[in-house]
Nucleic acid binder design. Structure first.
Lengths: 141, 141
DNA sequence: CTAGGAGTTCAAGCCGACTTGAAGTCAACG
DNA sequence: CGTTGACTTCAAGTCGGCTTGAACTCCTAG
């Protein structure tokens, strides 16, 4: 049915593609972050499918956006369990999306505070009055 | 010169204002995150000035945007050292601002990936074809 | 006068996510 | 044939930033 030209990748290749150290890829596997088993060649070395390599990339995004390993694991468990739990998977994704959006909002708030301080310094330095900057105080926000 | 009506705050009050647990406020002080000394009343309890309380709030923003404690410490050391190093303080702030902007960009990239996945689920669930979602694969990005 | 609650110090513990290390296997090249 | 260099497993260590705990002091209200 699906004519698959199986391109298999070594851990080193996946490492390159994802930016994850090989150690971390093994660690992720151990933590159950892959739905299917990762194959091995005759010598016992890992062979990743393109899909698995792609999933590893997705994982980097989930991680960099703060999804904890146990939650990725939970999601993967649902995937492994097969069809019937799509709503639950969807809920996990949507909830994480919400959290990330919140993170962005929080960061932007912090950024505003920092930027205010930056501007104060900019002006004071330009005017040569930087030595008059209050030590901490109401110089910001 | 400056007619200061000294309003001093207890650690509990500062905790409330900043959202930082009292333990954390003491910890920050110990880590050298305050430029000046924090005063004490007769019984040895901490009394914060409004400026110090405000600075604690700024610290929450620096922290929540990922500035490491040692770097806040470094900045504070410069403040303590007095005028003459404004350029250096400015550099720290500007650099951090840059990093935070980068964080926002990265998060938004991750958000896009996640959102793509969310949309795929949304559509599949609406169409009742969710069971046909590929396990991992090219469903995203 | 005593019980509660906020504060104090100092030290140890915890958590997540890696990272590092040791000790060994394998294959391809010169 | 020998030496790189990528790979393997399993275990232990690291790191930042709190968090928790124990043991104590002080002020205030009932």
């Amino acid at each position: 049915m699906t004519t698959e030209t199986e391109t298999l990748l070594s851990i080193g290749e996946v490492s390159e593609r994802t930016g994850l150290p090989t150690h971390t890829l093994r660690f992720y596997e151990q933590e159950g972050l892959f739905a299917g088993p990762i194959r091995r060649n005759a010598a016992g070395r890992r062979l990743y499918t393109e899909e698995q390599a792609h999933w590893a990339r997705v994982c980097t995004k989930l991680r960099s956006s703060g999804m904890p390993l146990p939650e990725i694991h939970r999601y993967v468990d649902l995937v492994r369990a097969g069809s019937g739990n799509e709503e639950e998977r969807f809920a996990i994704l949507r909830e994480h999306e919400r959290k990330v959006a919140q993170q962005v909002a929080d960061l932007e708030e912090a950024l505003a505070v920092i930027h205010t301080k930056v501007e104060i310094y900019e002006e004071a330095l330009a005017a040569g009055t930087a030595d008059q900057l209050w030590r901490d105080g109401p110089t910001c926000e």
